[in-house]
């Protein structure tokens, strides 16, 4: 990619990014991918914790009382579209089109903020309905997982705002294509984590009740253990 960068960078591209590396991959980009690989482990553990305690809350509210799948489908769509805006921003940065870059960045920021708005609304609704962090196993694992995801999105929004401001102040080649590209990787990663969360916590786990109602899960596991033994 370092090669592609040198070929297609805008004229005012700072030479600092043209460094040679032993792998041929820019160090910052490599670092971001290593970080994303490790973040898979982070979210993997949180998701596993949710799945381990799934359907074991012995006091309500249970997911089926409180999870709103239609609203979250809308917020999932919004986050997906923000990924589209982001990738268009990266494309604009690659083509050196600073004006388009700024527009796409702001669209991404707005869509990301709408997603966070949905999450704030959801968390607050849960609190009002009596589902606090310490209420039951469901609430603790749910808020930990989705809260950390929301924190990732929020950090991404701040990052993109910084890029948009830098781009607006420096029309000539700043931020570089690589700067935008790396922020985009982070943003898309947050999107794919949400794809997993949406499926497991909302579409599959959103109808869980107290332990005896989680029977489908128990049956599933019995089936798995039956296969193993």
């Amino acid at each position: 990619m370092a090669h592609a960068d040198t070929t297609h960078a805008p004229p005012a591209h700072p030479p600092a990014h043209e460094e040679e590396t032993t792998t041929g991959i820019n160090h910052r980009k490599l670092l971001m991918w290593v970080f994303l690989g490790s973040d898979c482990l982070f979210f993997g553990s949180l998701i596993a914790t949710y799945m381990v305690y799934r359907g074991q809350s012995i006091v309500g509210p249970y997911p089926r009382d409180i999870i709103d799948v239609p609203i979250t489908t809308v917020s999932t769509f919004v986050l997906l579209m923000s990924s589209f805006a982001m990738v268009m921003g990266v494309a604009a940065a690659r083509n050196g089109n600073q004006k388009r870059l700024i527009q796409w960045l702001w669209l991404t920021i707005v869509l990301g903020s709408i997603f966070i708005g949905f999450q704030v609304y959801e968390f607050n609704l849960f609190r009002v309905e009596g589902l606090r962090y310490e209420t039951n196993l469901f609430s603790s694992t749910f808020f930990t997982l989705t809260g950390f995801h929301g924190a990732h999105v929020t950090l991404g929004i701040f990052w993109l705002i910084c890029l948009a401001i830098v781009a607006a102040r420096n029309p000539a080649g700043r931020p570089s294509h690589l700067d935008v590209d790396i922020a985009g990787l982070y943003w898309h990663f947050v999107d794919i984590v949400w794809i997993v969360i949406f499926t497991l916590l909302y579409l599959i786990g959103g109808f869980d009740g107290p332990p005896e109602a989680g029977h489908a899960a128990v049956q599933g596991w019995n089936w798995v253990t039956g296969l193993i033994s």
Binding site: W33, V34, G37, S38, C40, G44, A48, M51, V52
Partner: peptide
Amino acid sequence: LLWQIFVAGLALGLVVALSLV
């Protein structure tokens, strides 16, 4: 190499999650 790095992290995460469950 980027594929390998990401898939390694993803696979580790999956193994950890599956083991816990």
